[in-house]
Design a protein around this nucleic acid. Sequence first.
DNA 1: GTCGTACTCAACCGGTTGGTTGAGCACGGA
DNA 2: TCCGTGCTCAACCAACCGGTTGAGTACGAC
Lengths: 119, 119
Amino acid sequence: MAADALSRVFAALADPTRRDMVARLTLADATVNELAAPYDISLQAVSKHVRVLADAGLVTRSRSAQRRPVHLEAEVFDLMTAWLERYRRAAEERYRRLDDVLASLPDDDPTPSAGGNRP
Amino acid sequence: MAADALSRVFAALADPTRRDMVARLTLADATVNELAAPYDISLQAVSKHVRVLADAGLVTRSRSAQRRPVHLEAEVFDLMTAWLERYRRAAEERYRRLDDVLASLPDDDPTPSAGGNRP
DNA sequence: GTCGTACTCAACCGGTTGGTTGAGCACGGA
DNA sequence: TCCGTGCTCAACCAACCGGTTGAGTACGAC
């Protein structure tokens, strides 16, 4: 099971509907009803999606009257950014090291598909 | 279904075993056998994990003799970073803007949801 | 050829997920 | 006090996921 925090966050964002919700929540807090409006699924399904986001720490709930507005939490993004940045940098460094190796070789590299061109 | 690229990437990284594989692949390419070594699961299961990573575009395969080394691709990290950074920044900006709003708002009713839009 | 190594494909299994419907709770307003 | 609105809980279902085992393929070595 995806017990750890990072797994829950990644899993939560693996669903396009939930990513769309997150995108809209960056603009303003919203109720479950408001969140549900654009989608062709039941309110209960939306409620479940919100719960997944909340369990991942991506959003928090409050209560004002009958409404329970959903609020996006920015902090969890930092967690992901930290993980991503760490390995992205490592991967790129390794890639750069490969350039060194290739540069020291006599032949050239006529395959643009594999590498892309990283200046 | 999670057909789009971003969903596949997030889903692939939602598994701690696969994240660990990615972490180790930042150090060096590895074969399926090498990748499988630390884990207490079958080789076939590891092979499946590698396939998920490959389908997400996180790794590529090649063939040298019987070996099919797995190579980490850095480009997909850029895709995630772009998504993340976009919404992280938006969320933080909104947080900052909240101060402004609270300072300037007297009173307001911006959500007439009960009255009009219930299809 | 035959063998060993390094995988992959296929079928299966239990648990999780995304969706449904129906019932029920919490709260404010008439 | 009852009603309507907003939301959640519970049960169910089909599909998917991570794992297994067993068989099969690709390739180099002998």
